[in-house]
C-alpha cells in the first residue's frame, strides 16, 4: 500500500523536474550576454523608436556643434584668443600632480590632475588647460609643474615663455618629456603656428 502514493508522487515530481529543467535552461541560455551587438528588435515599435532616437541624437549633436562655435566666438574671439595645452611624451621620470599657470604675473590656472587624466596624457591625449583672451603685444607665460620626480622625490620645476601675441588665435603647448641621458624630466614650451 505504501508504494502506490509514492509512485504517484514520484511521477508528479518527475514532471515537475522536467518543467523546471526547461525553465532553468531557458533562464541560463536566454539571459544576458548572448550577443553584444544585437539590435533592438523584438518589438517593431522599438525598432522605430531606435531610428527616431538616432535621428534625434544626430540633431542634438549638430545643435551642440553650433552652440560650441557660438560660445567660442562670443567668449574667445579668434583675434584675441589664447589657448594653453599640456602634453606628455613618455614621462617616465616625472609623475604629474599639478600645473600652475601665470600669465603676465597673474594666476590663470591651477590644475590638479587625476590619475585617469595623467593616463590619458601618457596615451597621447592633449589637455587644454586654459583658454582666454589677450591683447596684441608681448606677454610672459610661466608654468610651474609639480609632481614626483626621479627616485620618488617631490619635484617642482618652472618653464617660461615670452611670446608675441599678434592678431589671430595663439596656441601654446607645455610638453613634458624625458631627457633620457640625464635621467631627468624635461619641460618644453612650444608655440603652435
Amino acid at each position: 500500500m505504501r508504494g502506490m502514493p509514492r509512485r504517484i508522487f514520484k511521477g508528479e515530481m518527475n514532471m515537475f523536474r522536467l518543467r523546471m529543467m526547461v525553465t532553468m535552461l531557458l533562464a541560463v541560455l536566454f539571459s544576458a550576454g548572448v550577443s553584444a551587438n544585437e539590435p533592438l528588435a523584438g518589438a517593431s515599435g522599438m525598432a522605430t523608436l531606435d531610428q527616431q532616437t538616432q535621428s534625434l541624437k544626430q540633431a542634438v549633436l549638430e545643435l551642440n556643434r553650433e552652440l560650441f562655435v557660438l560660445e567660442e566666438e562670443l567668449l574667445y574671439p579668434a583675434n584675441t584668443q589664447v589657448s594653453v595645452f599640456v602634453s606628455m611624451d613618455v614621462g617616465e621620470y616625472f609623475a604629474l600632480d599639478s600645473i600652475q599657470l601665470t600669465l603676465d604675473g597673474k594666476d590663470i590656472s591651477n590644475y590638479l590632475y587625476t590619475p585617469r587624466e595623467v593616463k590619458a596624457l601618457h596615451r597621447g591625449g592633449v589637455h587644454q588647460i586654459y583658454v582666454g583672451n589677450l591683447k596684441v603685444g608681448e606677454h610672459e607665460l610661466v608654468a610651474v609643474f609639480t609632481g614626483e620626480g626621479p627616485h620618488q622625490r617631490d619635484y617642482r620645476r618652472g618653464a617660461t615663455l615670452n611670446f608675441d601675441k599678434a592678431i589671430g588665435a595663439k596656441y601654446v603647448e607645455l610638453r613634458i618629456s624625458d631627457r633620457a641621458q640625464q635621467l631627468q624630466p624635461e619641460f618644453v614650451v612650444k608655440e603652435w603656428e
Binding site: 602634453s87 585617469r116 587624466e117 590619458a120 596615451r123 597621447g124 591625449g125 592633449v126 589637455h127
Partner: peptide, 16 residues
C-alpha cells in the same frame, strides 16, 4: 602622433 592640438584634446577625452 598629434599634429593638431585640438585632435589631441579630443583623444584626451576619448582615452578617459
Amino acid at each position: 602622433v598629434v599634429r593638431d592640438p585640438h585632435y589631441g584634446e579630443v583623444l584626451f577625452h576619448f582615452y578617459q
